[in-house]
Write a protein that binds this DNA or RNA. Structure first.
Length: 107
DNA sequence: GATCTGACCACCG
DNA sequence: CCGGTGGCCAGAT
């Protein structure tokens, strides 16, 4: 049996592929891994994640998820803005515009 | 080992 | 889009 990469590891692999100026949602990641209901585990994976562009991961509504460290929320927004993303007054981004999915290269 | 909590989402209304 | 509910699973107490 081929030792498949652990769930968190697969999550990291996807997050690392997210290009600059784009974002991905937890649900999208879980869905890509074939576990649409496992989105929560994606969050856990991110919690222990390191050396991954975690700031490019937002929730299903395009908003920055509430985290343990309040500072990180502002930091995440700052980084995304630095990559060209625009937040609305509600602190959300247009997923239709910024959501990135693998295999679907935007020209 | 039961219970609660948590970087969440899909579904329903 | 918003709010409530159920589900999933790992970590902490």
């Amino acid at each position: 049996m081929a030792p498949e990469p652990s769930f968190p590891q697969q999550v990291y692999a996807i997050v690392r592929k997210v290009p600059r100026g784009k974002v991905i949602t937890y649900g999208a990641i879980a869905h890509l891994l074939g576990a649409p209901r496992k989105a929560r585990q994606v969050g856990w994976a991110m919690a222990t994640a390191d050396h991954v562009p975690w700031h490019r991961v937002v929730n299903a509504r395009g908003e920055i998820s509430r985290r343990h460290a309040p500072d990180a929320e502002a930091l995440q927004r700052k980084k995304l803005e630095a990559e060209g993303l625009v937040f609305d007054v509600d602190g959300r981004v247009d997923l239709e515009r910024y959501l990135w999915l693998p295999n679907v290269r935007v020209k």
